[in-house]
Design a protein around this nucleic acid. Structure first.
Length: 821
RNA sequence: GCCGGAGUGGCGGAACUGGCAGACGCGCCGGACUCAAAAUCCGGUGGGAGCAAUCCCUUGAGGGUUCGAGUCCCUCCUCCGGCACCA
């Protein structure tokens, strides 16, 4: 009888003892780096969602291993950051105590799940031995001019007392605590990720990633092609307002301009009689945070007229300049030319304030009927005309009238270019990466401020800048970082001049910790360098990265950027960190994402205790396609449980009978078909169908009480390896093998000649409906097949007395007789 | 609103480049073993009509292409995920 718990303990013990899961990092001939996203070790312990992700990645890693590759499969802990800090505050335990405990729990849980980790190469981001190099990376970027400090409006969460990245704000509220977010102006460290925008975008064309992840990154980067145009001020022709537009073709329709409230030209544009109103509006806008301004529910446009005018370079008309909060300072130039006829937002604004609306683009048929496209009167309903009809043409656009929008746009830009008033431009949604956090639980940013020497990087020899143990680490509502109150920390001497100086007291974003951890795993045994050159050459880039799509943009984009920067600085020989990335699906329960608040979280320990890790693994991967996720239903676990137990019984019976060989050609054929199927399924991460195929094979092997031979069960045992590794090892041993299954690369090959039968069962349709199945020789010709088909009772019933007008015959696949009655 | 993805039995889900829809599993029904139950084993199981052979219907809805559509095209509906006043 199959007893999972003792079997699993036995093999986990042997694996650890024999270092089965630790590849030779210096000598491996077929290195394969199988990476999975490392977890944030919460105090509550491992979540089934984590285990689902890891199990699938482990299936993949073990499969590659059984095919003969030297698989390096490390794990680590992403333990810095707001998650951990907030939780520590909540339970009132210092994170320096809490985190090691959480990691211990996680480690224990991961070990018993039977995942093929190399525990001799783990990474913990909170370990000074690790974050020393995180700080080192900051310094490399700083020296290369890729890190800079600038004052910027930032999102501020009054509850978490910290700056939030735009990504950490959802619908105007803090992602963590749900509090309404405000706006503050702070001096922050930024990484110039925008220097790499084009490379980040272009490489998406060749990296082998899940398609949806590629799309998400493209959208996030948000390239848009347009033009930069300059509008002279009516009051001062030497001064211009720059705008970015994707629709230069609509320039003749620009009847007013709108600046973001923070725009630097607002002051000089505002006339005295408008000043009070303008500054009231600007104050109100500043009180609302960046994200609040973008909130969905209330899109009613507001704004005020500055009293100033600009000149539309196309029409020569003076147009009013307004400010409004629907124009964002962070995008483009912080100013727009408003074309109400062809932009829904501008349209609404114009309606709201009674501004001119001038249509300048029309559908081709309308232009056909028009004698003079340079003077058309056109009624708009309650919508702007924004459709991009094929061949739409310009109207009311002077000399450009009648041209297609595409051509007209290009000509307008060219014409402005001659006057120095415009040129084509590309704009991106992507912003520089703000890495400063006014929090405690992160790696200090290694910078010293000296009155004499200015901003001085901490010398590399002085790293790490240790995060001190601070009792009162709760952030204050004054926006002062916790470390700024720790005098022994921030007092320093300037490394350059030796005078008294002050340390940077912000810590860096958690996303920086995780932006390079995979570079560290192979080199964890070196403490004098972040990445050993030989190790890096041998193992990196990552061959397969599996993770959740929730990280499709941030983590994956940041780690690509860091890798590119390190590449350009000569530290790594590749510019893309992950050659292949596959997203895994989300495991849900009762139709909802698992969460503590919904009370539908599953604790894996409970299930592993009851059923064993192998059964639980098999169940998790069987419940649905790995890349799509699925519904966790407790009842379903019985299937995998029976399957493993029946497999054990079958192998046991085979061993006892002592029979060998392949006595039954039908069974042998199924074995080969299964090998083909399962191999293909593992290649495409279709673990659910691989398991189903093995179940089918087992059903054949033991059909009607049949006892299989040792040779018949061997491929089954090997293919079970990635799925239920402990059981597979046990069965492998029962079959008389001496060393670990995973040391031997025994993945079976199928013999194509054994897949084929001499005869085939051919479905016969009449008018597309199945009326019979006939057995014919493989490759039989149409005449033979038709005759056999017409002799079939079921077919005859539908062909007698009617005329066969057409015969469709796909050899070995199908015969379709088309009749007319 | 925009960008992804998905709608198939009572349930989770299969179906390669258009070719026998419902693999595999859960559940359910029947049988064997048992004093009995559990476990195990064997058989059945999309819906409808019929004693039956057999026939009809069926992949979110409606149209289309095709000898043939879950699969391709058009229109629409619903659900999930992401982005969201990005000029």
């Amino acid at each position: 009888m199959y007893e999972p718990t003792p079997t699993e303990q036995k093999w986990q013990g042997l694996w650890a003892e024999q270092r089965t899961n630790e590849p030779d990092l210096d000598g491996a001939e077929h290195p394969y780096y199988n990476l999975m996203m490392f977890p944030y070790p919460s105090a509550e312990g491992l979540h089934v969602g984590n285990l689902y992700a890891f199990t699938g990645a482990d299936f993949h890693g073990r499969y590659r291993r059984l095919r003969g590759l030297d698989v390096f499969q490390p794990i680590g802990f992403d333990a810095f950051g707001i998650h951990s800090e907030n939780y520590a505050l909540k339970v009132n335990v210092h994170p320096m105590e809490l985190i090691p405990r959480s990691i211990e729990t996680f480690t224990r849980q991961l070990e018993r799940a039977g995942i093929m980790y190399d525990w001799s190469h783990t990474v913990t981001t909170t370990d000074p031995a690790y974050y020393r190099w995180t700080q080192w990376i900051f310094l490399q970027l700083f020296k290369a001019g890729l890190a800079e400090k600038k004052e910027a409006p930032v999102n501020w969460c009054p509850s978490c007392k910290t700056v939030l990245a735009n990504e950490q704000v959802e619908g105007g509220k803090c992602e963590r605590c749900g509090t309404e977010v405000g706006q503050r102006l702070l001096s922050q460290w930024f990484f110039r990720i925008t220097d790499y925008t084009e490379k980040l975008l272009a490489n998406l064309d060749w990296i082998d990633w899940s398609a949806s992840t590629l799309t998400a990154q493209r959208n996030w980067i948000g390239r848009s092609d347009g033009a930069l145009l300059r509008f002279r001020l009516a009051s001062d022709p030497d001064e211009t307002i720059e705008v970015f537009t994707t629709r230069p073709d609509t320039l003749f329709g620009a009847t007013f301009m709108v600046l973001a409230p923070e725009h630097p030209l607002v002051d000089s544009l505002t006339t005295d009689e408008r000043r009070a109103e303008v500054s009231a509006y600007r104050d109100a806008a500043a009180a609302v945070d960046l994200v609040e301004r973008l909130k969905t529910d209330d899109k009613t446009k507001t704004g005020v007229f500055t009293g100033g005018f600009a000149i539309n370079p196309a029409t020569g008309l003076e147009i009013p300049v307004w400010i409004a909060d629907y124009v964002l300072m962070e995008y483009g130039t912080g100013a727009i030319m408003a074309v109400p006829a062809h932009d829904q937002r501008d349209f609404e604004f114009a309606r709201q304030y009674g501004l001119d609306i001038r249509p300048v683009v029309a559908s081709p048929d309308l232009v056909e009927q028009t004698i003079d496209p340079s003077s058309v009167s056109l009624e708009l309903g309650d919508q702007a005309f924004v459709e991009h009809a094929e061949g739409e043409r310009l109207i009311n656009s002077g000399e450009f009238s009648g041209l297609t929008a595409v051509e007209g746009g290009a000509r307008i830009v060219a014409s402005l270019g001659e006057q120095g008033l415009g040129e084509p431009q590309v704009n991106y949604r992507l912003h520089d990466w703000c890495i400063s956090r006014q929090r405690y639980w992160g790696p200090p940013i290694p910078i010293i401020y000296c009155d004499e020497c200015g901003t001085v990087p901490v010398p590399e020899a002085d790293l790490p800048v240790l995060l001190p143990h601070v009792e009162q680490f709760k952030p204050g509502d004054d926006g002062i970082a916790p470390l700024a109150k720790a005098e022994s920390f921030y007092r320093a001497t300037c490394p350059t001049c030796g005078r008294e100086a002050r340390r940077e007291t912000d810590v860096s974003d958690t996303f920086l910790d995780s932006a390079w951890y995979f570079l560290r795993y192979p080199s964890t045994d070196f403490d004098d360098r972040p990445m050993d050159e030989a190790r890096t050459d041998r193992w990196l880039a990552v061959d397969m990265y599996i993770g959740g799509e929730e990280h499709a943009v941030l983590h994956l984009l940041y780690s690509r950027f860091i890798t590119m920067a390190l590449h350009d600085l000569g530290h790594v020989p590749f510019e893309e960190p992950y050659e292949r990335f596959r997203k895994h699906g989300l495991i849900i329960r009762d139709g909802a994402k698992m969460s503590k608040s919904k009370g539908n979280v599953v604790n894996p320990d409970e299930y592993i205790d009851r059923y064993g890790a192998d059964t639980f693994r098999t169940y998790l991967m069987f419940l649905g396609p790995y890349q799509e996720g699925g519904d966790f239903r407790e009842a379903g676990i019985a299937g995998p449980q029976r399957f493993l137990s029946r497999t054990f019984d079958a192998v046991e019976a085979a061993v006892e009978s002592g029979q060998t060989g392949f006595p039954d050609p039908d069974v042998e054929r199924v074995i080969h078909q299964t090998i083909r199927q399962v191999t293909g399924d593992f290649e495409s991460l279709s673990f659910n169908t691989a398991i189903a195929a093995l179940m089918e094979l087992l059903n054949v092997l033991r059909a009607s009480g049949r006892v299989p031979t040792r040779d018949e069960v061997r491929p089954l045992v090997v293919m079970l390896g990635p799925i239920a590794p402990h059981l597979a090892e046990e069965l492998w041993e029962m079959l008389g093998k001496e060393s670990s299954l995973f040391e031997q690369a025994p993945w079976p090959d199928y013999d194509p000649s054994k897949l084929i039968t001499d005869t085939v069962d051919l479905p016969v349709q009449v008018n597309g409906k199945l009326r019979g199945t006939i057995t014919v020789a493989r490759g039989a010709d149409e005449t033979t097949v038709s005759q056999a088909a017409l002799a079939d009772e079921g077919v005859k019933r539908h062909t007698d007395g009617v005329e066969i007008v057409k015969t469709i015959y796909i050899p070995d696949r199908l015969l379709n007789l088309v009749v007319r009655s």
